[in-house]
Design a protein around this nucleic acid. Sequence first.
DNA 1: GATGTGTAGCTCTTGGTC
DNA 2: GACCAAGAGCTACACATC
Lengths: 183, 1122
Amino acid sequence: SDITNTMSVISDEGISAVLDMDALSYFDDNLKKSWRGRDHWKVTNWKKFNTNTSNDNNNTTADASTTAAAAATTTTTTTTTTNNNNVGDHSDDDNSSPIIDKKQIDFFDFSTNPEDIIFESRKKSRIDMPLKDRENETHYLLPNDFHFTADKITRLFIKPTVRMAFISKRENLKKLSKGGYKS
Amino acid sequence: MMSSNDNSSSSVINQDIPSSSQEGYLTENTIDQQIFRSIADVFQKAQLTYAGHRKHVAILRKIQMKAYQQNYDEIFNLWFCKMISKVLLIKKTDPLGDRIVRLVAGFIASWEKHVIKVNEELGNDTNDEALGFSKFLNTFMRYILRAIECKNKIIRYRVTQFIAIIMDNITEIDEELFDILSWSISKRVTDKEPSVRIQAIFCMTKFQNDEEVDNSDNDSDINAIKTLIKILRNDPAPEVRRASMLNLIQNNDTVPFILERIRDVNVINRRLIFSRVLKNFDDFTMINRNILEKLITWGMEDREESVRRACSNLISHHWLNKVNGDIMKLLKKLNVTKSSIANKVLMTLFRNRHDIIEKITFPKEVWQNLTPEVSFLLKVFYQYCLENDLQSVIEDNFFESAELATIIKLYANGAFEEKNEEDLFIFQQLLDVASKYDYSDEIGRRDMLNLVRNILFTQILDQQTTKLSINTLKKLAINEKDFIAITIDIIQDIRDEQIENGEISNTDNLSEVEELEENGKDNKTDTNIKNSLNKNGIIGDDVKETEDDSVAIESFASAVDGYVNQSLANSSRISESNVSQSLIVDDLDETTLVRCLNMSRYMLEIVEEPADSITMSSLIDTLITPAVRNTDPDIRNLGIRNLGLCCLLDIELATENMYILGMCVSKGNPTLKKIALEVIVDIFSLYGTKIVDGEGKVDSLSIHKIFYRVLKNADHPECQSVAAEGLCKLFLCDTFVDDDLFETLILSYFSPANQDNELLIQAFAFCLPVYCYSHIQHQEKMAKIAADVLFRLSMLWSDIQSGEDSSYSNDSMLKPSKILQQLVDWVDPFRVVKLSEEDALRSNTQLEFLHVLLQIFERFENKNVKKMILTSLNRFKVCKEKDLKLMMNIRESLEDILENDPIDKVCINSMNKFLTDLSKCIEENDQSVENSSHTNEEEEEDEEEHEQEKKEEYSNLQEEQTTATNKEFNNNIKDNANISFIMNSKISDLGGVGEEKEKEKEKEKEKEKEKGKFDDDLISTKGIKRRRESNSDSEGEEHFDDAIDKKEDNSENKGLVNQKLEGSDSVDFRINDIALSTTDYNATTPSGSNLNHQKKNVSFAFPDVSSDELSSVSYVDNNDEN
DNA sequence: GATGTGTAGCTCTTGGTC
DNA sequence: GACCAAGAGCTACACATC
């Protein structure tokens, strides 16, 4: 409430034209999962900035519906296949895999002996965790979270009631574009 | 079908037609088959639904009994096991298996229950029933245990599942069997499959129960508990830790480990602490205070909404219910006077339980007899009402300000006169209310003002209370000027009183002041701050910095003196009229000084506009300056903080004080360094670059150097992270634009030296994406340096892996593939905020990165890294909208690599895929250009011209020539092409001359490169020479580091390594470098010539980035120096 | 080790009972 | 109004596959 140097007073050039509060929340939303940085970073899908332009929305909805439709199709096909399998049920014996993946087991059928598999000697195959995985000095605990937010980084260090004035002067903008590629 | 060759005794395979074989055993066979069929029938039915399980269990029991009666119990056991053998093959997710498991558990439980009953009836456990059960259990368990180390994980899972559920359903077990079980299970706890481990844990939990009952079992109990704790903390799979967390027995030894999971990396585990573990605690006061405070703080601040919700549910439902809705009881339990979470807890309650808001009232009589709890409730309640605009609630419960003043006075008396601690606490709560109160009533306002003023004047308050009081003053003042006047009056009064009481002999001080003023005049005539400082012998020199502390301190002190002189000189225009001038003393006792400084600090923190300059300079001269000069570090820190706050109100003051702030950063102790750094960043954030580079101003290069140095110094991680965050902020608002400083910044994010600086890592993790995605030009900057960043870090990584660089462990650094991913991600134009889809499609940031990367591809020495780059090609997104020539260039580079590099199939596949896509885009791009030229005649010309331009450029590039064309990729930046890139405007005059020279050199270098030989040293040396030229050209201008430069000139080429180590110098070179080369840089960037450029820059630019390890990464061969 | 699919563990809603 | 149960929908994690 008592902030004088808000982003709004900033000239409409360059970065300040872009960085309003909405834009900042775009970062907060999309960055909240990568706060641990570096070692824990992985590629994530970013939610598009909501620009109120119908274009974006249309695109996204279109995309979504297509994928949804695609997904729906796949689901239906899979279900049908499963159903087909179910019809065949326990009468069709699948010898290719010992593992039972059927709607029902025939407890009367001992045409194949499960003991061949379950008591199979384990030979060379490793069934234990590698030693290096058994201890971890982080104990799988999160580090201290310093809660960087767009709000925090746009405030001054020693006077947090005041925001940075994004006085982006023309000269600096030019400097910035120097050597950069524009498209 | 059935195999006749199966003759192992335990594997009596039966057929569907039982009587067909095994003649002579018909009777037995029939019973055998009957048992088989009966059991199979039950299993057959029970697998489909849980309904009827009870019946099925009963039938099974009957079958067993009948078999027993016929002396066929062993056959029963055998067939039972056979059934199970089938179940062991049912995959984990199939509910069939679980149903049978439950059936078996039910059967066993039912049988055991019966056995116990019989045992009780007969008074022994050796009866037939008991023995029969034991026999069955032994047979069954040993049967499945034979499969517990099966190589098939599903079977291991089912076996452990059976064991777990059986353990859960029986009360006793043979010791011998138990031993075998616990031995087998303890091995499965380290199974490679998490699902098996979880079941093993379920078994383990059964071993920890009998603790007190049987001492002989204690060992295994303790072992079980120890194992579970180890798993809880060390298992990589969250669901396994979860199983351990929820099943570990809770006692004084285990609870801390369980609650530690509040910071588990897994969300569900964290949430469960609130929704399960803590919910089951009878009384949270059992938990250690510190732990409890942390639990709630972390719970409320968790990144995940669901955890926060679980936490607030715990508080607002469970906890409140436990005290039957009695908030006062809850507050007592929380111990409000010492709790840091009570505030949060109450706020959560108010937010989630609107029903209790209505029930809270503060009748007048309560105010007279406040307890800490009630006053605390009052404070938080008022805060809540204000935040939620509950005006009517406030009106009902809180009265006129005059009355509030009276009440506060009451408790203030208790607090200060009678030194009653409870009253002090109550006073603080009420003061908090007062700082937000409505003072429309003039009498109330005046009463309160007098009260607060009086308290501030007479009492020595802690920081928090001081802050509250000052905040209240602001609320009470008519306007900001009034507020400042009131506060400064109080400070003045305190000082006056102190001086009166302190019988200070002012004579010495006065003469000192005069002396200072003399110096000040000197300074003024000089108008050169730096000269006077050089006189004092304190130049920001790395060599000096390494000298012993006493020298540093001395030089620091003289710097401060210099500052004081200067500040006096500058303020003389004001101080003439300043009566209190004679009071410039630092003899105020420390407590008073700190008290005044804190008051002024809290005042300045909330002041929005500067007061009149007289008031401000009086504050600075009489309070802040002496504090800055003080030898006590705490006071000095406060002094600098205050000075910084003043600077944020007055740009001139800020400009004047940049130097002293810089000195504080380079010479101060870590705390002072940090504050001063923060101040510098704040000043830049507020005023931009206006405060540097100009008549009497500090050189921006020096400021750059300061940042470099702090950033590279891992000894002061806090300063490092302030520098990192600060630089990110300044780059974000385009106050800083230097490429090399920026690259240093990125490198320090990935540097293994900073691996443990969590604050720095997190600052970067947030700020760097914000920078890259906030503006397309920011992203372009990243794209420009990305390839070099990857190169340097890959080299470093190779060194670490090969053991050449032993200062870091192998995993202290991100793999190059991950770094590449990150960089590609940062230059993804689709993430740029408010950039339209079309612009994003057209943006070349990612391809620029790729282009430069392919240009320097051959310089990557590590084969694996090369391979990695090629297999990662498809991470770069291409589309027809991209720049045609850029795409063609990339294609060419890739084809070159395909031809000349020995590469494996994976790479070839990846490259082919990318090339196919790329060619398609190139084709489409070509077509669309043609199409558009036909559709729109007007645009045709432009388009053609543009295309022509591009083509020219690219053909130039392909020939790897850097003709001094000023053509741009994009006309947009044409205007900027000739604008020098440097910070110091004076140098820019030289641009033309330097430019030509530069281009000549560029050409030379290009030729060299074409020959295939690349002499790094030569180029580096050239770089230095060139720098000197430009430096001498810029003679006469004020240079922060003239002294160093000259010194170095004298010492004649100290060698590259030294220059590397003295990072300070590199900044200068670098900036001039850019100044001389930027113009053609724009025109030639995608070419190979740029590569030279980059290389050359690099060798100077980051000598001190992340200490020596990066120097080995540098292109410059520095062996001769080592 | 990157990929897509499947699943656990929620959360929220609806509808019903006490 | 509290409570539960069933059902839909969501997301991070687990699993499977290549």
